[in-house]
């Protein structure tokens, strides 16, 4: 369907013209944005910010100023509760600078210029475990926001493989065979990073990258075993890769694939998020608001993920 939309736009593009306008968009109301996650074997991590008026300034300072501090954040697993620690960029534990910079999308050098806070805990009893449901409570400026998420059992790939695409001999997509568990709801997220060693002696990709639409659920294939492919999302912005090879893995690449599973409400958030990102402004799609699983009037998500990792060696 997205391709249909794309084609229709292409058709209209032949005759249409686009210009920037200023138009009154009534109804702005500032909301709290809670971006929290908990993954198997990792601590919960929560960022809190505020939504901004559509015409508000969009420079880096305005963006970073939208993050808030001073909230009380609690995570529980139904039996015990832990109050998360507020850790801020101007007061980071040694060795966590790179992680913090990555979290906010700024350079390590800039960290000290901002007071940006995240909420987490070093209490390993509250780190993610498969099968548990985690309850989040945020108190901020007199309001309470709550949510819950379950870490679903992980599913491993049957196999990962690579094959050259079409007439190419050295370029192809990453392919996978997956056996979906029958009779239960399953939702997946696909992330990748290449671990080939670069000229600097380090793996060429630092962290995991998500593909164009990284989430899918088993609505179409409950209980089936099937093959599917994903493109290489890392090379789109890489100027050294010629256009005709964009989206492909190169013969010899080594790729770690992280397959995460999530519950239905979390999938619903991510499904609509990626739909919004691909259709925002498209007149052939309905405006998609992203359904938050947080109760109390906040935007965002409290997401639990179970993960499985597999490595793909790109050889025929």
């Amino acid at each position: 369907m997205k391709k249909l939309f794309f084609l229709l736009i292409l058709l209209f593009a032949i005759t249409s013209c686009t210009k920037e306008v200023t138009i009154d968009i009534p109804g702005f109301e500032e909301q709290l944005v809670i971006d929290g996650s908990i993954e198997t074997g990792y601590p919960p991590l929560v960022l809190i910010s505020r939504s901004k008026d559509i015409y508000s300034p969009t420079n880096i300072d305005a963006f970073l100023a939208s993050f808030v501090s001073g909230a009380s954040v609690t995570v529980g697993d139904g039996t015990t509760e832990v109050v998360l620690d507020e850790i801020c960029t101007d007061n980071l534990p040694p060795g966590t600078e790179a992680l913090a910079a990555d979290l906010f999308g700024i350079s390590v050098a800039e960290l000290a210029n901002y007071h940006l806070c995240a909420y987490t805990t070093f209490n390993t009893s509250m780190w993610g475990q498969v099968g548990k449901t985690y309850y989040l409570t945020v108190n901020f400026e007199g309001k309470t926001y709550t949510s819950m998420t379950t870490i679903m059992p992980a599913t491993n790939f049957d196999q990962l493989y690579w094959k050259p695409d079409g007439s190419f001999t050295d370029y192809g997509y990453s392919w996978a065979t997956l056996s979906d568990t029958p009779g239960q709801y399953d939702a997946y997220k696909w992330e990748v990073k290449r671990i080939n060693i670069g000229l600097d002696g380090q793996p060429i990709d630092e962290g995991f990258t998500k593909t164009y639409n990284p989430v899918f659920d088993d609505d179409f294939f409950d209980g089936l075993t099937f093959d599917f492919f994903y493109e290489n999302p890392m090379v789109w912005d890489d100027p050294t890769v010629p256009d005709e090879y964009k989206g492909y893995y190169h013969l010899g690449d080594s790729v770690v694939v992280k397959l995460s599973k999530m519950d239905r409400n979390v999938f619903s958030f991510f499904e609509k998020k990626y739909i919004q990102m691909s259709t925002a402004g498209n007149p052939f799609a309905t405006p998609t608001n992203i359904p938050s699983n947080i109760v109390g009037g906040a935007l965002g998500v409290w997401a639990g993920f179970s993960t499985s990792y597999d490595t793909l060696y790109c050889v025929p």
Partner: peptide
Amino acid sequence: TLPTSWYVQ
């Protein structure tokens, strides 16, 4: 229907 606000996740 247009967006009234933006946020980051």
